[in-house]
Design a binder for these strands. Structure first.
Length: 605
DNA sequence: ACCCCATGCAAACAG
DNA sequence: TGTTTGCATGGGGTT
């Protein structure tokens, strides 16, 4: 059973081939036959369990040229109010959400949503070399595409299952072995994997026998967890569902979209308070509304505070929320909490032949033990959420912050195992801080350490849910004691809420690095027959981050949480040429961007 | 010529 | 008197 052997070369797979039962990859012994149809049918079609095109990296997707490139001028908003694309394509839940927000807020501040305009913008900007596709922002996108609706195949196993406690994982794994064939006979029998998918996954795992073993191990483990969970759920299914709660569960979708005022409860998203040993982090898949039932069943595993959860995220949404239209998008309100906070580290995706395996943590016991040790270590030292806010240097915090999961920085649950060929972007890769320009090559934007840049980048896309809005290289006047930052006009008009009053609007701006939320004010001044846009109340923010002239702030729209995020990028000691901008462009953002790109390239080296 | 925006500066405000 | 607020100015890039 350990011997995984594909019947084909990993790299050679017939696109027309039929599904291949799991057993077929195991030592050529047909241990598992195709399910008889009335059992759990793990019909993992090509393109369903593999997903190669991660959501776009929201880091600097639109450069200053965006406003000129994007068709929507000043009224184009990150949170469109009346975008036909948005209203027509977004899920019904979003429509409800939108209306709620519009009724309640007074200044046309809309929750983050994606508009086709924005997508086009991204495309036009050539950012798609990173974004690859529109699925992330496309309300109609199928984040995990599949020719078939895997939910149908998952109808009988769509419970979102979890592992018990992490301490039990060893037992679980042991049980995998102990149960032996009985284990397989129940569920593995019905798992079908397309040969190409297997081949691809195997290839991703190195194409070696060991890699195949690893693949099988992952599958087995996943199914085993399903087995365990199924047993549990048979006695108390609801417990399983209720065990995971949003840190700030609130049935009112508006709770996620406090746009006009600072969210009184930052924990609504930005300050999660794990309710207990379990804390689910929202995944892009489950949260962002671009995954309908066609969402790929993924082998998901997350270890959170020493606990592990396995979940097939969209299955849960499908099962527990039958209102979710197929192939449609749904936003948070339609998704069950379970769905919304589904982890995903175990993932095998496929799309258009470009395969990517994102495997879970248990590739080796050795590695897992190390991770668990790290988790315990971190957990001992960080038991209170408030402490997390000072972890701006913590890479994991950065990542989760950008992912809107607001996972505690010390929370080790954010780890994933990444095959050596594709190191985890979460753990190893700092985000590219420089918005990619058209002329920028992907290599320039990507970390250099592990794995291919493309794989890492895709992982990034998967993790992030932030949409780049604008960035600004701070001038002396921005970091002075005036407490205001002039924003680039075009970007402000294009991507920030429309201002109808000179009083402006309050914007809850989360510092992505620290998870701290700053209540800023976005407003404009008339200026020389034109308009000047500013962020006010930035003094504390600037001081807290020690921002200086030449540093950058990048403003994002958090599409999951409906808030704004700001990321600071400090360019270090202001010794050399700290006046790079030197008014070298008319648009400060353009100037800043172009100059900052160069500066950042230096920094990233 | 137009526009953007960094910043100067004075009025208003607060302590 | 110090700080904040709001507008004006003008350098410099773009059209």
């Amino acid at each position: 059973m350990e011997d995984i052997q594909s019947q084909q070369q990993p790299t050679e797979f017939d696109p027309t081939e039929e599904e291949q039962v799991i057993g077929a990859i195991m030592d050529d012994r047909e241990i598992f036959l195709d399910g008889n149809g009335d059992e759990h049918h793990f019909d993992v079609n090509d393109g369903s369990i593999f997903y190669a095109d991660f959501p776009p990296l929201p880091d600097f997707p639109c450069m200053s040229s965006s406003s000129s490139t994007c068709s929507a001028p000043s009224l184009a908003k990150p949170f469109p109010t009346s975008s036909s694309a948005s209203s027509s394509n977004s899920a019904a839940s979003w429509a409800v959400l939108k209306s709620d927000v519009e009724e309640d807020v007074s200044k046309k501040i809309q929750p983050p949503a994606t508009s086709m305009e924005d997508e086009d913008c991204f495309n036009d900007l050539g950012y798609m070399n990173m974004m690859d596709g529109n699925e992330f922002w496309d309300p109609n996108c199928t984040l995990f595409q599949s020719d078939q609706n895997p939910v149908q195949d998952y109808n009988n196993m769509s419970e979102s299952f979890q592992l018990p406690q992490d301490d039990n994982e060893e037992r679980n794994k042991a049980q995998i072995e102990d149960d032996g064939l009985s284990f397989f006979q129940e569920d593995m029998r019905s798992i079908k994997l397309k040969r190409s998918a297997i081949a691809s996954a195997s290839k991703r795992l190195g194409g070696t026998k060991e890699g195949k073993k690893q693949l099988l191990r992952l599958i087995l483990e996943w199914v085993s967890q399903y087995q365990l969970q199924k047993k549990r759920m048979s006695t108390d299914a609801s417990d399983s569902l209720c065990q995971y709660q949003h840190p700030n569960p609130n049935p009112n979708p508006k709770s996620h979209f406090q746009y006009n005022t600072v969210d009184p409860d930052p924990s609504a998203c930005f300050y999660p308070t794990p309710p207990g040993p379990f804390y689910l982090m929202p995944t892009g898949a489950g949260f962002v509304g671009c995954n309908g039932p066609s969402f790929t069943p993924t082998l998901s595993q997350t270890v959170i505070n020493g606990n592990m959860e396995y979940q097939s995220s969209t299955m849960a949404a499908s099962q527990y929320n039958p209102l979710i239209p197929e192939n449609d998008c749904y936003f948070t309100t339609n998704a069950t909490p379970h769905d919304l906070y589904s982890p995903y580290p175990y993932q095998l995706f496929d799309e258009n032949g470009e395969r990517l395996v994102r495997l879970g943590s248990s590739a080796t016991k050795e590695a897992r033990k190390k991770r668990m040790a790290r988790q315990r270590h971190h957990y001992r030292h960080h038991t209170h959420q408030t402490e997390h806010q000072s972890q701006s240097s913590d890479q994991s915090l950065r990542m989760v912050g950008e992912n809107c999961t607001m996972f505690p920085a010390d929370n080790p649950g954010n780890w994933v195992y990444w095959p050596s060929a594709a190191p985890s972007p979460l753990m190893m890769v700092p985000p590219p801080e420089v918005p990619p320009t058209i002329e920028e090559t992907p290599e320039m934007q990507q970390p250099q350490k592990h794995g291919s840049a493309d794989e890492r980048l895709q992982g990034w896309k998967m993790e992030k849910n932030l949409k780049f809005l604008l960035q600004k290289m701070l001038k002396q006047s921005d970091v002075g004691n005036l407490g205001r930052i002039v924003l680039p006009k075009r970007e402000a008009e294009s991507h920030l809420p429309e201002l109808v009053s000179r009083d402006g609007i309050s914007i809850a701006m989360e510092d992505i690095g620290t998870s701290r939320v700053w209540n800023m004010k976005y407003r404009f001044w008339p200026n020389n027959k034109s308009t000047m846009y500013l962020l006010e109340n930035t003094g504390d923010f600037v001081r807290a981050n020690g921002l200086q002239e030449g540093d950058f702030i990048v403003i994002y729209a958090d599409t999951k949480c409906g808030k704004y995020g700001v990321k600071v990028r400090q360019t270090g000691p202001k010794a050399e040429g700290k006046k790079p901008a030197k008014k070298n462009a008319r648009n400060s953002s353009s100037a800043a961007n172009s100059s900052s790109v160069a500066a950042m390239k230096q920094l990233m080296k």
